[in-house]
Write a protein that binds this DNA or RNA. Structure first.
Lengths: 150, 150
DNA sequence: GACTTATAATTGCGAATTACAAATATTAAG
DNA sequence: CTTAATATTTGTAATTCGCAATTATAAGTC
């Protein structure tokens, strides 16, 4: 059995570092890697509730609640009560939050493209397609983990 | 410019979850994801010093020092003074530490292979080769980040 | 409608993690 | 021998984390 863990251990480490570096470089002290994940996911989903984002990120809901609170205090996230169910809060990015999110996007993309630019066109496309493929497979496989069956 | 951040954001998230899940499943309470990274890197390098491991992981040396201390207390890591320079501590895994590391390796590999098993042989090999390729490119590109020039 | 149960989110709390600044220990340089 | 440099640890305070308990709202039952 080939040792694929090696590959992914390095991959996750590298990306983790890149992620922190980005938070420092492009957002100063105003955001942490975890918070960057949260902004990303709020932006991605359509009118998500707290549970939905926390679930997607595999975060404990109480930890998530506090992180959201600080993001609200910073003015990056807005909580809107669900019109049909007052228990639920709909999360959305404020214009400032969206600005930060776009900033991160740009910075990370630039860095990644700089890494990818050392490859040939063919390699680059293969790599991108491969990761897409892998993510899909992963999603199917781990969906049972983060969204408990009941 | 294609949005490659998307891919890597999901990738790192998925692997992060998988990593935590592994720490819970295969090691119980006795190890955290950060500590798993440390064991991995100690095992990988040849008679590494504290600085070398902390540098490779991009960790603050004081945080690293404390994490190593808890790993020593748990009996997974050994610190040996460098014969020629008493300031330096050489890090190594104890038999128990190596056991844990092998355990993690096996568990993560099994899970990853389960994910990869949904692909065709060709896809699988392409994915593995691609990640290898990308790690190499990343390594070259970020080496300046984690090992500051001086 | 009153009462119980279920769900969404927050808060109390203690433990673990983090990083800056300062201290310690050892070696190297002049 | 004194000073500067390097490796590691400790003081300390802020942040993060997750379990248990709490609050607030909604849904189900009689």
């Amino acid at each position: 059995m080939e040792n694929v863990r090696n590959l992914f251990q390095l991959l996750s480490r590298n990306f983790g570092l890149l992620n922190e570096q980005c938070c420092d470089n492009c957002c100063g002290q105003e955001i942490s890697p975890v918070q960057s994940h949260i902004l990303y996911e709020i932006n991605r989903q359509h009118q998500p509730s707290m549970q939905e984002i926390a679930g997607a990120l595999g975060m404990d809901i109480t930890t998530f609640s506090r992180q959201v609170k600080t993001l609200v205090d910073k003015g990056f996230v807005k909580k809107t009560p669900h019109p049909a169910d007052n228990r639920i809060n709909i999360l959305s990015l404020t214009p400032e939050g969206l600005g930060i999110e776009n900033n991160i996007n740009l910075t990370v993309n630039t860095q990644l493209h700089s890494v990818l630019s050392t490859m040939t066109e063919f390699e680059r496309e293969t790599v991108i397609r491969s990761i897409k493929l892998f993510n899909d497979a992963m999603q199917k496989s781990t969906s049972s983990c983060c969204t408990p069956p009941k």
